[in-house]
Design a protein around this nucleic acid. Structure first.
Length: 586
RNA sequence: GGACUCUUAGCUCAGAGGAUAGAGCAAUCGCCUUCUAAGCGAUCGGUCACAGGUUCGAAUCCUGUAGGGUCCGCCA
């Protein structure tokens, strides 16, 4: 479906040419939603910007443009206001027609993009053998959401988790596996190595305390890098154990499957990266390390800052792996857009590796590498969220606590209302609300800013929270239950009549989903979708308050049922793109 | 020394060149015999950190200042 704003933009472009000639064919009409509903629905700000080039008063330009503007099928007659704004108000009949069109469309009027791109989203990339913790919360939630949105609007999306599955800590883990679980290496049976973090802690303790063990660990690293069979086998066991533990978290969070393609995957390509950089003359040996000196970065003494690609001992570091990944994603994966939802503290690192990738010729103008930075998760004291002992909070713990909070809220409310519900109902509502609240709290803030993690605020029943939106959806379901309405059977020719102000406001908002999704797929700021859904819920609640549905006379009754249905479907789709499922009752 | 980032209502935050800067919470006051009041309406609340500049127009772009956060050679 052609979005209204895109349609109007075309009309303006035609009017600009008609009024001022071909020179103005590519002039942006500066068409935006109005800043205030009293000005109508859309405003064009182009007249002011043309005052200088045309040498005319902006209001006169606006008038001239208005005469050449043909929007009578969409809008009431345009008006000129203020210094030269051209204000547009959509016709009710047009809105009714548009609603009718999206009602029949499973995609609710959101067209698939005309130029689908191959996109890689790189998240949440934890380190093997370490439990996922609060540091992985944002990449998992934001990455999953970005991937869902880009996929929905029609791109070819690949989710890749660049897990830390190679390097020195593995010696320790493998040595521990050999010493404590020798059977793991010979038997193919499923092993229970217990809790992952316990396994890691034990290995670490032993590494710190025992010199012979340290030696065994070092030997294991060498064997691993040499590709020694038994060591590789042990490595794989540790990786699989980790994957299983991640998968449990992803399932709990409702994160769609990601392809694990970790650092080890790029291991064979690391020498090529060094060779290529060297051949291009970018590589400089400094203190035994092979480096690329960066443009625009200096160290504390004011000298150019190197990016170390190969360490003086011949080993590789994460910069090398990241460069190999850049190269591979362009040359083999043929990605056109690569998105890294990673904390803002790594901004320098990404600027640096992208710079080197560009200078090496891997990143060209045809491919966009984008670091989508996000801020910290802070505790209610405004400091980085940590346990009392100063450790990162395990994700499992944090999520279960959210569920427990949600459950307590629910049980309190059930008791207050004298309602009886089954254990299964309570458990399901608590999980959907608890996890949804955590995800929504994260996504509803501007990605780039820090945010304060508060169970009380994210689970609040009013305001811009997951429960508020889930409730709006539940209200619609309440109507369909009460009236025994099957929304799917409303019929494609159900008449839509917009009479009340709240109906018009709701209708206009319903029609903006496509614009919002297009914007979010561009700027990758999911909070804009959250804002849209929150406003939708508010507008629905206002409509619900003012307009009886089931008791209304026809044709209003059916028309309002369609508005309810469209609201519910829009919430369902929108929340699903945030990775949040819905409830029929709560 | 350098780089990035933030500073908007009492609190938590939107706002990415357009008209009188918005929302939620908190506070105060209304609205349930009627589809779940987990709701709706109203009131209160601002020197957009500060100073310059660009622009017809700046919370938004540029420069500087102050204050907070983060990062800066062989961890990822």
């Amino acid at each position: 479906m052609n979005s209204t704003i895109a349609d109007l933009k075309t009309r303006f472009e035609q009017a600009l040419v008609a009024a001022f000639g071909e020179d103005y064919a590519n002039t942006d009409p500066l068409l935006v939603p109005t800043s205030n509903p009293k000005f109508g629905d859309y405003q064009a700000n182009v007249a002011m910007s043309l005052a200088k080039p045309l040498g005319k008063a902006p209001r006169a330009i606006a008038e001239q443009l208005r005469h050449h503007l043909d929007v009578s099928d969409l809008c009431e007659p345009p008006t000129v206001a203020g210094p030269g704004f051209i204000n547009l108000t959509l016709k009710t009949a047009y809105l009714e027609g548009q609603l009718h069109a999206i009602q029949a469309d499973p995609r609710l009027g959101v067209a698939s993009v005309k130029d689908p791109k191959r996109v890689i989203v790189d998240y949440p990339s934890p380190n093997i053998a370490k439990e996922m913790h609060v540091g992985h919360l944002r990449p998992a939630i934001i990455g999953d959401c970005i991937a869902r949105i880009l996929e929905f609007v029609g791109h070819d999306v690949q989710r890749i988790s660049h897990v830390g599955d190679w390097g020195t800590p593995f010696g320790m883990l493998i040595a521990h596996l050999r010493a404590s679980y020798p059977k793991a290496l010979t038997s193919t049976a499923n092993l229970d190595l217990g809790d992952l973090s316990t396994f890691y802690r034990q290995a670490k303790q032993r590494f710190n305390a025992d010199e012979t063990f340290r030696e065994a660990a070092r030997l294991s690293v060498v064997q691993l890098q040499a590709g020694e069979q038994e060591t590789l086998h042990a490595w794989k066991i540790v990786c699989e154990l980790s994957s299983r533990s991640y998968q449990k978290i992803y399932d709990l969070m409702g994160i769609l499957p990601v392809m694990e393609r970790g650092e080890s995957f790029y291991n064979p390509f690391l020498p090529d990266v060094v060779v290529e950089l060297d051949a291009l003359g970018l590589l400089v040996e400094d203190n035994g390390a092979k480096c690329v000196f960066l443009e625009g970065f200096t160290n504390k003494d004011g000298n150019p800052l190197p990016l170390i690609v190969q360490k003086s001992d011949g080993g590789y570091n994460y910069a090398a792996t990241d460069l190999a990944a850049i190269r591979y994603r362009v040359q083999v994966d043929r990605a056109q857009r690569v998105i890294y939802p990673v904390g803002a503290e790594q901004t320098n690192h990404f600027v640096q590796i992208f710079q080197v990738g560009r200078r090496a010729g891997w990143i060209t103008d045809n491919v966009e590498f984008f670091h989508a930075p996000f801020g910290f998760v802070l505790g209610e004291n405004g400091q980085k969220l940590k346990t009392r002992e100063g450790d990162a909070i395990p994700l499992k713990e944090l999520l279960h606590e959210a569920i427990a909070h949600a459950r307590q809220d629910l049980e309190t409310r059930l008791a207050a209302e004298g309602r009886q519900e089954t254990d299964a109902f309570i458990a399901n509502v608590a999980q959907v609300v608890g996890i949804g609240a955590v995800k929504y709290a994260d996504l509803s803030q501007n990605r780039t800013s820090n945010y304060i993690f508060s169970y009380d605020k994210m689970l609040a029943l009013q305001g811009n929270t997951a429960p508020y939106m889930l409730y709006a959806y539940v209200r619609v379901q309440g109507i369909s239950r009460k009236g025994q309405i099957d929304f799917e059977k409303l019929g494609a020719n159900a008449k839509i009549v917009l009479q009340e102000e709240t109906e018009l406001v709701l209708a206009k908002h319903l029609l903006q989903l496509e614009d919002v999704l297009n914007q979010v797929s561009q700027d990758l700021l999911p909070n804009r979708l959250c804002q849209y859904l929150f406003e939708l819920s508010q507008k629905f609640n206002q409509f619900y308050d003012r307009c009886p549905v089931l008791q209304a006379e026809e044709p209003l009754r059916t028309s309002r049922l369609v508005l309810c249905d469209l609201t519910a479907r829009t919430l369902k789709l929108g929340l699903s793109l945030l990775g949040i499922p819905l409830l029929e009752r709560m």
